[in-house]
Amino acid sequence: MNGVHDLGGMHGMGPINPEPQEPMFHEAWERTVFGLFMTTFAGGHFNVDEFRHAIERMDPAHYLQSPYYAHWLHAMESLLVERSALTRQEIDGRMAQLAEAA
């Protein structure tokens, strides 16, 4: 797929800006996404190629603007919904519940 993920050789992406003393995860949700990916991957819900392709199917502007683990979240959620482990309604409903409880 000739997607925006195929970045080799592109210009204009800006400086690299390595972060000194970078933490492994920048937000608590990133840690959770990493753990959920590893457990659902090990559980056989998708293979690594399906996972990578699900990232490639992201909206290209969103791909470039979102933090790395948002890519993982997008791919994992897409695949779990496509394989009927979760439904959009369940996710939306639970988000509303959690927001109300907060």
């Binding site: 797929m1 080799g8 050789g9 990578r52 490639e56």
Partner: peptide
């Protein structure tokens, strides 16, 4: 579809 062959 998915490929691991970069365009360049």
């Amino acid at each position: 579809s998915h490929t691991r062959l970069p365009r360049y």
